[in-house]
Design a protein around this nucleic acid. Structure first.
Lengths: 228, 228
DNA sequence: GTCTATAACTTGATAGAC
DNA sequence: GTCTATCAAGTTATAGAC
């Protein structure tokens, strides 16, 4: 029989994904899991810690996979930086693999991540800290795949890409979850389409900043010649 | 002195945007607005109706503007369908105009919309109904701007674009709100960059569907002629 | 580890005086 | 229209028996 701890995690994962964090009460979770309220506090101290545990259970191995994939692609490229497509793939494959493996939460978890991405203002920064190293490695890889793009623009587009991906994770229906093992076909296609879309965005022409730069007044004590 | 009703709307708008709908209590709203709890129920029946009122106050005129702009661009194009850039502009200009007019909620409202876009599973469909006509007109315009793109792909990319825009609205800092009137410069630039990014995505190559089509078995009892 | 019981508090909503 | 007072229900969290 499945452990109480896992049943709580499963139920919480599903309900958080469906209704959001604050809209989901611990009581609805224990009802769905068929366990006692006190068990939640025994295993996970608090509601917030429960959310963190729900996330870490999936995100930890997925992030590991992401780094391994990126490293492999870098090795395959033989010294040269891997192409943009490959970098995105290294990030998205583990994501979509989660999405089609029922034993790893299936569609539910990625939906949760898509949600939290918007709700995250009130999320404990601790959670985001777990994604820190991964994000750093990938932004570095993006930088090398798009050397022409100014760093600030790259950062911005990176965030847009995250928003776009979150959108896909959120509203892709939970269709083929009950189907057989390599459900991947549908997801594979979705991922290819997403990557094509994202690459085009990353490579779109940079719009020059035509703003009038703010005039920063020189300190009064500045000598005359310094203005040049 | 400002009416109670408006003070409630203002406070609710800000708090919903900052914390999300379910995480914001009516009591925190009345505290911020400096009004009585009963006043909320007097003016807006319920919490849900309050949210609806908050949205409609801004969305109604913005949607009007969107339709007018689209119509103007169509007239300017003289019979021919306006370019993709123009269609996106017609949708986004009113959005970003909201974002830089302090008297119309400024950054706060667009942030709320960015949030609700993700939280919307539990939102009353009534609200989305108000956007219905606008979305219909624009998807039609998009279709004519991109005649080569299959309808299903266009719909999908349209949703991605909404997700991308929501991301921008959500995390653009509330910087220049306190600055002088035509704050627009910063937003104008942001909008241009967003449009460039989105156009590239819309025009990215379509990934062919390599999935094996599912075999639909014919019903055994079906007579040959009856199907028609 | 799992339960019951309950504390301590917050929530949305309403009735009724002014 | 605006207030006070209050309801009924729901919330997270904990103490203590088994």
């Amino acid at each position: 029989m499945i452990q109480t701890k896992d049943r709580i995690l499963d139920a919480a994962e599903r309900l958080f994904a469906e209704q959001g964090y604050s809209a989901t009460s611990l009581r609805s979770i224990i009802a769905a899991a068929g366990v006692n309220l006190a068990a939640v506090h025994y295993h996970f101290h608090s509601k917030e810690s429960l959310l963190e545990a729900v996330i870490l259970r999936r995100a930890e191995p997925a992030n590991q996979e992401r780094l391994e994939l990126l490293e492999r692609y870098q090795a395959e490229a033989g010294g040269r930086p891997p192409a943009l497509e490959k970098v995105l793939e290294a990030f998205l494959i583990p994501t979509f693999r989660l999405a089609c493996d029922p034993s790893r939460g299936g569609n539910v978890f990625v939906k949760l991540m898509g949600r939290l991405h918007a709700e995250s203002d009130l999320l404990p920064g601790i959670i985001l800290a777990h994604f820190g190293p991964v994000l750093m490695r990938f932004s570095e890889a993006l930088n090398r795949a798009l050397p022409e793009l100014p760093a600030s623009e790259l950062l911005w587009r990176g965030r847009l890409a995250m928003g776009t991906a979150a959108q896909v994770l959120r509203d892709t229906p939970q269709a083929s979850l009950s189907t057989s093992e390599p459900v991947s076909q549908e997801w594979e296609h979705t991922m290819r389409r997403l990557i094509s879309y994202l690459c085009a965005g990353f490579r779109s022409p940079v719009v020059p900043d035509t703003r009038i730069p703010e005039v920063v007044p020189l300190p009064e004590t500045a000598p005359v010649q310094e203005t040049k």
